[in-house]
């Protein structure tokens, strides 16, 4: 090495590895929240780096809404096999069957909000004291105030006005029985950084992120993928478009973009020229200006 500084991607990588190792050192039973989306895939990749040559010392936890892109589940199962780690699944369907939550009604019904209960139940049932997430501060304004180590009380709730100050790189994960932490190792990454890094490291991601001919329905200004879970209105019709997804969530609410980006290079170029945030097509965030803050307070991802 001839230059004596790190470039910004190395710096972000090193910071995330440091955070993941702190989690391992400070908690008894941490898990990685794994959705099958690029951010959780990235966090898993960084965990691999953090503990090499040992294997990842965390289980992966998937909160399954039951409304999945089939490919996401396949992808998840492959990763579990490759890494040899444990998979914990929290099922929203089970939460519904057990009467813990009630399914939303109407056209825009989603299982998004229901995930919170399933997530908190799974955290409690598995005695998890730290859930590592792929949340980034650039995603949304409530997230911009999030700490790397974010405390949750014994109801799983976030108190944004009473957060622990976080200085230098000293992280305080102390907690009482029943409380837990959410930790966000890629807090300082932007969507662009994530793509540049995925490209640099050649990280495998689901093909849903690449542009492909897909069956979609136009709804609230976004292209929603057609699936068995979608109830069509009379005026709505299923069309075929070349679409890629910028985020992968519940299949019923994740809007895609028309795009020709079918390689990582093209995606990076496209993202660099984007004029809308990646969550702009997520109808869960559009419900109100504080939709994310409200969900986060209750214990959402």
């Amino acid at each position: 090495m001839s230059k004596y500084y790190l470039n910004y991607l190395d710096e972000l990588e090193s910071e995330a590895i440091f955070v993941l190792r702190e989690v391992w050192a400070q908690f008894e039973n941490p898990v990685i929240l794994f959705s099958g989306g690029k951010d959780s895939i990235l966090v898993t990749h960084l965990a691999k780096k953090a503990f090499y040559p040992a294997k990842i010392p965390f289980a992966l936890m998937h909160v399954d809404t039951g409304h999945n892109f089939p490919e996401t589940i396949q992808f998840r199962d492959n990763i579990i096999k490759e890494l040899g780690v444990q998979l914990i699944v929290g099922s929203v369907q089970e939460s519904i069957d057990e009467g813990r939550v009630a399914e939303e009604k109407g056209k825009n019904a989603t299982r998004n909000a229901l995930q919170t209960t399933t997530l908190l139940d799974a955290i409690e049932a598995n005695k998890i004291d730290c859930a590592i997430g792929g949340g980034r501060r650039d995603e949304e304004k409530a997230r911009a105030k999030e700490r790397f180590f974010s405390h949750r009380d014994d109801f799983g709730q976030w108190d944004p006005k009473n957060q622990r100050p976080e200085l230098w790189n000293i992280f305080n994960g102390k907690h009482f029985q029943g409380e837990h932490f959410r930790v966000f190792p890629i807090s300082n990454w932007t969507e662009m950084d994530v793509w540049n890094y995925i490209k640099r490291e050649n990280i495998a991601i689901p093909s849903l992120y690449f542009a492909h001919e897909r069956e979609v329905v136009r709804r609230d200004g976004a292209w929603i993928p057609y699936s068995e879970f979608l109830i069509l209105e009379d005026h709505e019709e299923v069309v075929t478009k070349k679409i890629r997804f910028r985020t992968l969530g519940d299949i019923t609410i994740t809007g895609g973009d028309e795009s020709d980006a079918d390689t990582l290079e093209k995606i990076a170029a496209e993202v660099a020229g984007m004029r809308n945030t990646e969550r702009g097509n997520r109808s869960d965030d559009k419900r109100s200006e504080s939709a994310m803050e409200d969900r986060k307070r209750l214990g959402y991802f």
Binding site: R137, D138, K141, A142, R143, A144, K145, P160, K161, Q163, S187, N188, T190, E289, S290, E293
Partner: peptide
């Protein structure tokens, strides 16, 4: 970023921008 901040028109906490 937080609802209280928007309502009161003040910054309470550290916000990170990129």
């Amino acid at each position: 970023g937080l609802r209280d901040e928007r309502e009161q028109g003040i910054t309470i906490d550290v916000a990170y921008r990129y």
